[in-house]
Design a protein around this nucleic acid. Sequence first.
DNA 1: CGCGAACTTGAGGCGTGTCAACCCCTGTGG
DNA 2: CCACAGGGGTTGACACGCCTCAAGTTCGCG
Lengths: 247, 247
Amino acid sequence: MDPAVFKPLHHANCRVMCSSCNLREICLPVGLTRLELEYIDRRLVTSRRKVPRGGYLYRAGDPFDSLFAVWTGFFKTCLSATDGREQVTGFQMGGELLGLDGIDTRRHAVDAVALEDSQVCVIRYEELEELTGEVGSLQQQLHRIMSREIVRGQNVMLLLGSMHAEERLAAFLLNLAHRLQARGFSATLVTLRMTREEIGSFLGLTVETVSRSFSKLQAQGLLFVSNRQIRITDPLGLRHLLDGVET
Amino acid sequence: MDPAVFKPLHHANCRVMCSSCNLREICLPVGLTRLELEYIDRRLVTSRRKVPRGGYLYRAGDPFDSLFAVWTGFFKTCLSATDGREQVTGFQMGGELLGLDGIDTRRHAVDAVALEDSQVCVIRYEELEELTGEVGSLQQQLHRIMSREIVRGQNVMLLLGSMHAEERLAAFLLNLAHRLQARGFSATLVTLRMTREEIGSFLGLTVETVSRSFSKLQAQGLLFVSNRQIRITDPLGLRHLLDGVET
DNA sequence: CGCGAACTTGAGGCGTGTCAACCCCTGTGG
DNA sequence: CCACAGGGGTTGACACGCCTCAAGTTCGCG
């Protein structure tokens, strides 16, 4: 591709730019060159959107026209059944993409709810398709992210299909800690942004079982629970619970 | 895009072509124009591969370089744990894509096993990325397929996380029947290509529970089981089992 | 400071796993 | 043609992990 194409666009009031975002090494534009980054600035993300705690970013059935990259805050996605049963299908933090569920049918398949006051970068999907056709590395990144989400799904299936309560909780905590670590936070001191209810829904367990499992892990000396503050005192021991399950 | 670009390539010994495949309305090239189809012929799929019953199309950890479209036969994908536990994460039939799990890390994340003698179309991934950059509708289709797979994952989470054994089996059968119907087969007479063990692994149940659930559904007059032949005698009744679960 | 939501813990029941026996079907070799 | 072996499937008895229901405490937010 001709580098001349990548003439950067400079504007005085250019606030929403990937090139100056501290999440650019975690988010969609990973691996783009400086030139490519400047080319997509002002085209990939044209606006940001605030979502208050408890607010919906989108609901199942809503028309789809954009993807969203979490900039600040924390989200859950869930499938709600008509009888009130609700399955949390994932938790999303800074740099992660929301909305991929809507690409197929052009309607969102799940609800996306902010667990705390949050802000997302709005990525118009039409524009994204345009850009991925022009910038190969952006296309690659999008595909990698979607592939990663597919694999994540299969791992959750393994969790739900063949792990016991304590194993599920351990796997959940380790995954959370790992993702937080990648964002520069402590891997041992985790602040949960979701309720036990939401953890239970995600893990296919009831609130009571989640609570009891926390207590049991604490009794085993693997972690220390104080409300939503979890201190993982024995990461290896926790991981050891998953020996024979992990692939 | 300039239509002149789509000069069709004609070759005497051109055997593997999407444009003349009876699955083209179900498979990756859905929605492509005649011109586009002829343009991608001989570039998208360069070869086919046979996989005998029980054979691996690929294994977790194998280097990734191609996607595969099921042409004939039937596959399962599974995540195997080190202790022998195995989670079947999906079943794939004609026109469905295998290998998307490998795009992210360039290594396959699951095993893909043929449940009967099968043939797949090999889609070199490098070539596909090239083509999706050129042909917008092909890019759109690939994205839709990946999105669909993500949503499928979330629906399996709902199944595994909050449905009872009989509900899971009912959902599984209805899904299978639906996909078979889309391929011109009967929606009421289903021949299972997988063992009870594999169904159980997929549904997060033991063989015994699967067997018992079949018996119970039969006792309720919803279907008739004869080995791997399932006759769905009351599709609405079966679907009714899922009232309040379906979204 | 007070109220409701969130969380923990206990007691008991139920659905599914576990273990075992048995049948059926298929393929194989005598 | 039959005997046999082995994998797949069904069914029963029992066990156990998680769910349900209930009570009580703590936390968080207005």
